[in-house]
Nucleic acid binder design. Sequence first.
DNA 1: TTCCTTAATGTTAACAATTCTCATTATCAT
DNA 2: ATGATAATGAGAATTGTTAACATTAAGGAA
Lengths: 155, 155
Amino acid sequence: MPRRCWRGGHGWRGLGCGQRLTAPRQAIYQALSGAQGHLSADEIFLRVRGRMPGIGLATVYRNLELLRTGGHIRSVDAGDGKARYELHQAAGGPGHHHHLICRQCGQVIDYMDFEKDELALVKKLETQLSGKYKYQIAEHDITFYGTCPNCAKRD
Amino acid sequence: MPRRCWRGGHGWRGLGCGQRLTAPRQAIYQALSGAQGHLSADEIFLRVRGRMPGIGLATVYRNLELLRTGGHIRSVDAGDGKARYELHQAAGGPGHHHHLICRQCGQVIDYMDFEKDELALVKKLETQLSGKYKYQIAEHDITFYGTCPNCAKRD
DNA sequence: TTCCTTAATGTTAACAATTCTCATTATCAT
DNA sequence: ATGATAATGAGAATTGTTAACATTAAGGAA
Ligand SMILES: [Mn+2]
Ligand SMILES: [Mn+2]
Ligand SMILES: [Zn+2]
Ligand SMILES: [Zn+2]
């Protein structure tokens, strides 16, 4: 008979029952926690490999997916063909924010300049859309695209 | 000496100087124009190949990129690993709208329920961000993610 | 502690979307 | 019509990501 697990042995919030707290997993989490977000899988791989030479790239991908579905991190598309990751607020990341992305160099800026207005509109839209299209809305994303001052210079 | 081109020979808005109006290019544009948006490169490829059996997939990719940088189309990430494309408003597409995407099946819904409120907020944000970060902001994207009624049923 | 189940790992091959190479074709300014 | 060269089609190559599989090790039970 399959033994049920009533309390997770380790204390990591979001790591479900049966999921183990391994060294690579912690290292990948710390890599994201250390640098401020928007790292790609291979950037994380290189950083972790500094302290843990034997780690495999597949392990990085596997754990990023696990952390993502576990709600610890979210992925960001900077338009350079590779997924980028950042810590969620609840996992020690920055607060709720949105992105300003340079179409030429891919720079990603976190901004939080909206306060109440934005939140109010988002709430209203969520209610309206949820009712009209019968969607259960889980999250939203607001992104502005443009040219950063650096790229504007050599244009 | 390189001859300069003062007026494009053909009349296609957005096709720059030196760019030629070829049959594949027109067919790809029409494929997007015919079906209502959110087609992937290989979906476009298959449709165009119906009327133009010799076309190559690389040609589709090349022209999608050209149409995109020319401002005729924009790409949408539905989360299924392949880029999807839709006509811009000015190119005969639907009006300015945003997206509601199902995380499970990838369905993309165009919505336009926002009217003035949203536009006002976006304008305000654009001004504020542009000033604060010295970005030239070209476009924005607002997307809500969730579960469509179909996927919610078999959950 | 020791044992056992099985989640997780590292290596490697496989994959799918996209881009590149290059010889050939076709557009269009002259 | 002609010539310069943008664009094409065929296929190989590249890239980000996932799958297979034999091996290791986390952590609950005894
Ligand atoms: Mn961010
Ligand atoms: Mn759309
Ligand atoms: Zn830039
Ligand atoms: Zn769905």
